[in-house]
Design a protein around this nucleic acid. Structure first.
Length: 411
DNA sequence: AACGATGTCAACCGCTAAACC
DNA sequence: GGGTTTAGCGGTTGACATCGT
């Protein structure tokens, strides 16, 4: 770990925070609020730079932080959100109250990525690794055919690395849209989620070899677009980006639209009707349900009645990943009929009190304030959801406009 | 018990965009 | 309009913990 340039100049402390420092910062912000971060350390009597104080507050001292390990449902949600948002950790964190972007990023890099790879899923694209391999071969083929990518796209290539943003193959498909009969790199597919949803794996009433969140995003969000073959307006794109965020809550609330009659390695899905109303973004527990904490704590309970409980009854892991001789795992796979997406391993549910799981110097403060701050989450989240939906809309519109510029298209 | 490999996570770095002057 | 400051974000690092031999 290095030191901020400002820390060098002022010979400020670096590294781990001591309990005394935490207490100073906590006391100061509790009394005065943070105001301008650069002035906080001086006023709080800390030998730290403002940036360091801000980070410490956001990632550790903030009273509304949820402590303890991630529940299975939280992990599933992160995977779902990552399939849509890519490495936009702050936006993902915004959907998980009490979790920080740093925490989620760490979890992703240390744990979830590994789990996905173990199950043959590319964590960057959320596609089967074999599919990704095929795409790379396609890409090479296209490159050999002298398809020139504009500098604009190339400059974004690194940015989209590690995310599910438009892949090279997808971008090329915009430049060279296939015929309707081919329907392989359908622009609609790109517009729906900034992800390619291969007609090979999802058809209107087709057999799919694997069922992944990214597939359902495009499919259930915009089934009425299936036969379109135009690029749509930029405003359409924005709306679709918003719709895309509705997909998971739509699925969670309408599991009947996912009726996988699992037979060996394939499942048949019937097409759902288009959503009749749009509920922006991933939903949090409603006011009628118990708190987030109780939902998380009930991760192993099938009848909790919260955000995660009406989940779809399918798994997006390759079937072989589910098969196991271990009775415990078999039992777990049965349990998953009542859960959202299968993360594979049977992890312990959240303890009743997070602070008990991970004793911290300020755990008593954090746990005491948790329930109080949850009210704040509940009451402000609808507004937050709306803002995030708008942001997502703008974000995808920008991405698509960038690509449009790159390929001389008008969106 | 010792040691290296691996995993976890808090904290830092560098960058960007917005706000401010 | 341009320079500076600030806030925020994602990538990376490194200390520490745990595991395996």
């Amino acid at each position: 770990m290095g030191r901020h340039s400002c820390c060098y100049k002022q010979k400020l402390r670096k590294g781990l925070w001591s309990p005394e420092e935490d207490e100073k910062l906590l006391n100061y912000i509790t009394k005065h609020g943070h105001g301008c971060w650069s002035s906080v350390p001086k006023l709080a009597g800390l030998q730290r730079c403002g940036k360091s104080c801000r980070l410490r507050w956001i990632n550790y001292l903030r009273p509304d932080l949820k402590r303890g390990p991630f529940s299975q449902q939280e992990e599933n949600l992160i995977v779902e959100l990552h399939a849509v948002l890519g490495n936009r950790w702050s936006q993902i964190a915004a959907q998980l109250p009490g979790r920080t972007d740093n925490e989620i990023k760490n979890l992703w890099n240390s744990c979830i990525k590994k789990k996905l790879r173990q199950r043959g899923i590319d964590p960057n694209t959320h596609k089967l690794l074999s599919e990704v391999l095929n795409q790379n071969i396609d890409t090479e083929t296209n490159n050999n055919n002298n398809i020139n990518l504009s500098p604009t796209y190339k400059s974004n290539e690194k940015a989209s690395e590690g995310s599910n943003e438009l892949s090279l193959v997808e971008a090329v498909s915009l430049k060279h849209p296939p015929s309707a009969s081919e329907n392989r790199f359908n622009p609609v597919e790109v517009s729906s989620t900034s992800k390619l949803i291969s007609s090979k794996s999802l058809t209107h009433e087709g057999s799919v070899s694997s069922c992944r969140p990214c597939d359902f995003v495009g499919y259930f969000s915009f089934p009425h677009h299936n036969n379109q073959n135009n690029y749509g307006s930029s405003s359409d794109m924005g709306l679709q980006a918003v719709n895309q965020n509705t997909t998971f809550s739509f699925l969670n609330q309408n599991p009947e639209f996912l009726q996988p009659s699992m037979s060996s390695s394939s499942a048949i899905f019937t097409a759902p009707p288009p959503p009749t109303h749009v509920k922006p973004s991933i939903s949090l527990p409603s006011n009628n349900s118990s708190t987030w904490d109780s939902n998380a704590n009930n991760s192993n309970s099938s009848g909790g009645g919260g955000y995660f409980d009406n989940s779809a009854t399918f798994s997006w892991w390759p079937p072989e990943a589910v098969k196991s001789d271990d009775p415990e795992e078999i039992k777990w796979s049965e349990h998953l009929h009542n859960t959202s997406f299968l993360m594979g391993t049977h992890q312990a549910s959240q303890p009743a009190n997070y602070s008990e799981m991970k004793p911290e110097s300020h755990s008593h403060i954090l746990s005491n304030s948790l329930s109080a701050t949850y009210w704040h989450h509940q009451n402000h989240h609808h507004h937050q959801q709306h803002q995030q939906a708008l942001q997502a809309s703008e974000m995808y519109t920008k991405d698509l406009q960038r690509l449009a510029v790159a390929f001389g298209q008008t969106l």
